[in-house]
Amino acid sequence: MHPLSLYFHFVKLRIRSQMEYRLSFIVELFAQASISVIDFFMIALLFNRFKQLAGWSLWEVGFLYGMIGICFAVAEMIGRGFDAFERNIVRGDFDTILIRPLGTFYQVFANEFLLRRLGRIAQALVVLLIANSQLSVQWSLTKVGYLLISLMSGTCFFIGLFVIAATSCFWTVQSIEVINIFTHGGVFMGSYPFSIYRWWFRHFFTFIIPLACVNYFPALFLLGKIESLGVSPIGVQLAPFAGFLFLGIAMLFWRWGVLHYQSTGH
């Protein structure tokens, strides 16, 4: 298990260097959490006035919100290397990665670890737990496993987006900022049930950018709302695998992109 133990060694080093500035770390953790608390509070305000959204209660939406929030924050924490890949290219650090006897994807992945996303993860987890306590979900071992797979799949989905943006740096140097639509925008739209969106919007975010597959469909299944949808339950149950597939495609794109790397200077 050499790659795995090496990965944890990298993470350990990263965490240690981030803890050097302890005060600013704690303040930022707090800032992160406060932003996201307000975020959810706003949704609560709307429910306070309007009571329900397309047949979803506040805590059902909270369940969606918690899931997508965890996925995104974890992706940001562990996938930071791709999220911040632009400066690797700008500074020429990618040369260093290429002279090491390890895969490029592995190295970029292992190189960074953003511990301060813990604040956001904690907030999203709390919302998810409260939502669960307010709802009467019949938990079984299968359902817990399914939830965990969905969360992993969602995380993979967001990392896949980071990878695609990072790969684009091989051509454009600057990361394509439009990816924000799918990352931050994805979290925003994923916090609400997909049924409120127009059909073309829904289809785009199901089949091309499989956001619905890692969040909305799994939540439908877990909250027992499939019947209301008229979609085959098998399709819904298999949906989370789209996240893994998405990351796989992103990785292929990465491998192809690396071949087009033009190091700085001649």
Binding site: Y21, S24, V27, E28, F30, A31, Q32, S34, I35
Partner: peptide, 10 residues
């Protein structure tokens, strides 16, 4: 403060 990220974030 050396680092304004936290304060500006809040």
């Amino acid at each position: 403060t050396l680092d304004t990220t936290g304060i500006s974030g809040i």
